[in-house]
Structures are given as C-alpha cells and as structure tokens.
Nucleic acid binder design. Structure first.
Ligand SMILES: [Zn+2]
Length: 476
DNA sequence: CGTATTTGACCGGCGC
DNA sequence: GCGCCGGTCAAATACG
C-alpha cells in the first residue's frame, strides 16, 4: 500500500505542470531533458526573447553599416568579420555599370547574403543565449546548494538550543525546520501539495527514466542515480500518541522545556496513562497544525541496509501488502531515546533498490558520516513543509541539491532526480564513490541473515554486496 | 551475561 | 462492528 503510494508520486512527478516555475526552482533540476525548455522561462516569455533577439540582430546590422559608412559605402553591408561580402562588393561595383537588371540580381544576392549573415548571427546569438542560460543555471545551482547548507547549519544549531521551539507542536522538530526555512528563503509561497491520489506511477518507468538521465549526465556508471524522496502527510494519530506521550512524560518529570533531546522516544504505552480526554483534546488542538514529514531515500543497494552513519536497532518487521519483500522497522540507537525511525524495504519491481524512509529528528549529535544525510533529509522535510517551493518541480529541483549535499562525494552528474511530489527520489548506486550512503550492514552483524532466513530474494543480494562494511565502521 | 534480533501479539486507524 | 493493514511491543531467541 505504502509502496504503491510512493510509486504513485514518483510517476506523478513527470507529469506535473509547473506554471509558477520560478528561476530558483527552474534551475538545475534538469539540464538534460525537455526541462531545458522550461528553463527558458528564466528570461522573459518567448515573445520578449524574440524581441530581444531581433534587437540584437538589428544592432549588429547597424554596426556593420556604421563601419562601412566611413568608406562611403552606400550599401549597408554588415561587417561580420567573415569577409563574406568584400569581394562581392567590388564585383558589385563593377556590375553596377553593366546594367540595371544585373544590378537587381546583385541586389537580390546581396539581400540573400545579408539574410544568411543575419541568420548566422542569429544562430550565434542563440548559442550565446544558451550558454548564458547554462551559466545562470549553474549560478542558481550554487545558490540553492548554499541555501541548503545554511538551512542545514541552522537545523544543527537549533538542535542544541531553544527547546521551546520543539515544544510548539508534537512533532516539534519539523516545525522548527519550517521556521528555519522561512528564514532561509525570504519568499514563503503557499505550496500546493500535490494530489496524492493523482500520483500514479510504476516504479519501472521511473527506474528506466533515471537510468537515462544518469547516462546523460555522466556517460558512465548509469546505475549511480540518486533520488531523494520526501513525503508529507498529516500526522496520524499514531504519531500523535507517541509525541503526546513524550510531551506529557516530560512535563511530568520537569516543569518546563520538554526538550526533545531528553524526551526522545517514549513507548506508546505511556499515552495510555493519559486520560482519553487529554488525548482527544491535545490531538484535536494539534491535529490541524501537525504535518509529519517523512523523507525517503531510495538507494540502489544490494545490501540489506544502507549506511547512513547512524546506529539502528531493528524493532519490527512486517510483510507489506503488495510487496513480496518485508519491511523492516528500525529505531535510532545513537542517542538515548532518539525519536528517529526508519523503514527499510526493497522496491517490489526492482529489488536492487532499497527504499529507506526516515522519520523524525535526531536528538543527539551525529557523526560526520551521518551529518550529511540527516541534514539533507531535514532540509528536504523542511523544504517540503515550509511551502517554500511553489511547485512540485521546484521541490524536485532543490531535491537534486539536497541529494548532492547528502552525497558530497557523489559527482553531481550522478545525482539525478526523478521528481515527484510529494515524493521525489534519490537513487544511489552501489558503485558510487561516495563514502556516504554506501551499502553496508549495520551494526556489525550482517543484516543479510535477517532476510535470508525467510526471504531468499531479498537476502541473496546482501552477501554479494561489493562493499565492505569495514569501511563504514571505520568512518564512525 | 548483556545486547541485538526475531517474531507473534497487540493496537489504532480506516473502510465497508 | 468487523476485518484489514500499518506500526509497535515485548518475550523468546541468538550471538559474541
Ligand atoms: Zn538518532
């Protein structure tokens, strides 16, 4: 069911229109597809661009006329610097004496030539235009990457301060992120959340799509594709209970500041301590404002789990409907009571793809290896929730930056987006050079055995993973 | 023996 | 109300 939902969104991305595409969002999300057409929007509309082009050509023409003016040329021949017309003009002069008919011919030839020259000029201008567009794209790329980094840094900073902010709502961290995003991006555009129901897709098409894209990008290692996915949904009462219980428990212990750092995850049972009325009241007052962000990363990995630098403890496994592969539930154990959870499941269609869905916010400092991922997912979630992206494609485009920031060692050309809202995905191939998100079994015990015991299909891959867990362990 | 994993039970939401 | 389903719990088990 859930996998089906994510599939939907993946597919949906390709078909979403982006009428409000802003320069920031338009850039960079794809230099290789027809999206280029969209990037044209950077410059005014088509009409305006045409006018601009025409002006430029006219200008060239005038310059040419001016140059020749000093020589006393009546015919305003454009000086193209190609010496196309010099011989012609001399012959023209001689032919002018011959007669009017030939001079007419020559005039026609002149015009044809002039036209050709102008067309050549136009072509050059077009090339120049394209180049400038690419440059602007790159500048915007850098700009967005910097913005992501800023958000990331702010996230990390807030994690160690202002517990009150976490208090605001149940899923405090998410809200804090929203604020930061609002600060980071001065424009707050009410974001149109994508229509979940409309998000229909098949995983296969997405995979093939990404394959093509990464080939476009790198020409090599087409399996190194990155898709990061974000999904946003109203929090379920499950989360509500959990968060509420956390809040309550801390308020019982201390009078103020139920810092998430110390409340962490609290067993759902605690919520039973609350009177149902409390739960109802709290849920009703928070339900409307809660948005629960989940960020899912799709990694092409043969191991049973990707290494994101954190320490996870498995607390459950279920057979998800519609997917022969089981879904594993992990809880972060790096910090005591860290509320972060993740679900790991293989893609039904392509079992080499691991779909890892993160939920929550770490309440503890992260090792450098985990920093990139955590901050990226946070940024992704906050970007999603903040509504700072006017359109799904905007989200998508920034997603590529998130993906790159999450994978600093992964060449940008290998990071592709298959965009979608509410989910876009990053794929990371096992052959990526990145130290990050590399296949690994974690902790020490090979997770392969878990799946191999019951699910052969899922398990066989992990043993053949080309990566050595040692490297991951060493990075911690 | 301490810790992590496994796995069936349990819970709550949701649709009918 | 009932069944399905996703998610979580926790006792049993495995492991180093
Ligand atoms: Zn954590």
């Amino acid at each position: 069911m859930e996998s089906a939902a994510s599939d939907h969104s993946i597919h949906n991305c390709r078909s979403i229109e982006q009428p409000l595409l802003s320069p920031e969002t338009a850039v960079g999300h794809d230099h290789h597809g027809k999206r280029i057409v969209d990037e044209l929007d950077f410059f005014a509309d088509n009409k305006g661009r045409l006018m601009e082009m025409r002006d430029q050509t006219v200008e060239v023409k005038e310059e040419g006329a001016h140059d020749h003016h000093g020589v006393g040329q009546e015919k305003q021949l454009p000086d193209t610097g190609l010496n196309l017309l010099t011989t012609y003009t001399s012959s023209d002069k001689s032919s002018m004496d011959d007669g009017t008919s030939s001079s007419h011919n020559m005039e026609d030839k002149h015009r044809t030539n002039e036209l050709a020259v102008l067309q050549a000029e136009l072509g050059r201008m077009n090339v120049e235009n394209q180049r400038l567009r690419v440059m602007i794209s790159q500048v915007n790329n850098n700009y967005q990457a910097l913005q992501v980094q800023i958000v990331t840094l702010q996230n990390q900073k807030v994690d160690h301060q202002t517990p009150e902010q976490h208090k605001m709502i149940n899923n405090g961290s998410v809200v804090v992120e929203e604020k930061q995003m609002m600060n980071g991006f001065n424009h707050i555009v009410p974001r149109q959340f994508m229509d979940m129901g409309r998000a229909e897709k098949d995983e296969l098409s997405q995979c093939s799509l990404e394959g093509c894209r990464s080939q476009d990008c790198s020409g090599s290692s087409p399996r190194n594709d990155i898709v990061e996915s974000m999904e946003c949904c109203k929090s379920t009462s499950h989360v509500l209970h959990r968060d509420l219980s956390g809040r309550i428990s801390t308020t019982n212990g201390g009078e103020d500041s139920p810092d998430q750092e110390f409340q962490g995850w609290v067993p759902k049972k605690v919520s039973k301590m609350m009177s149902p009325r409390d739960v109802d009241q709290a849920s009703s007052e928070t339900m409307s404002m809660i948005k629960k962000a989940r960020v899912s990363v799709r990694a092409r990995s043969e191991a049973s789990m990707i290494s994101d630098g954190c320490q996870w403890r498995k607390y459950g496994q279920k057979m998800a409907k519609g997917n022969p592969c089981p879904r594993a539930y992990y809880r972060c154990t790096m910090g005591t009571g860290c509320p972060v959870r993740k679900q790991v499941q293989r893609c039904a269609e392509d079992r080499t793809i691991l779909v890892t869905t993160y939920e929550g916010h770490h309440n503890h400092p992260l090792p450098p290896a985990a920093m990139a991922m955590a901050s990226t997912t946070s940024a992704a979630a906050s970007m999603l929730l903040s509504g700072s992206m006017p359109s799904a494609d905007g989200l998508i485009s920034s997603n590529s930056f998130l993906a790159r920031s999450a994978l600093p060692n992964c060449p940008p050309s290998l990071a592709t987006l298959s965009a979608s809202a509410p989910i876009s995905h990053c794929h990371i191939g096992p052959h990526s050079n990145s130290n990050f998100l590399r296949d690994a079994t974690w902790p020490a015990k090979p997770a392969a055995s878990k799946f191999s015991s019951k699910h052969d299909v899922c398990a066989t891959n992990s043993r053949s993973s080309p990566f050595q867990p040692i490297e991951i362990l060493g990075s911690r």
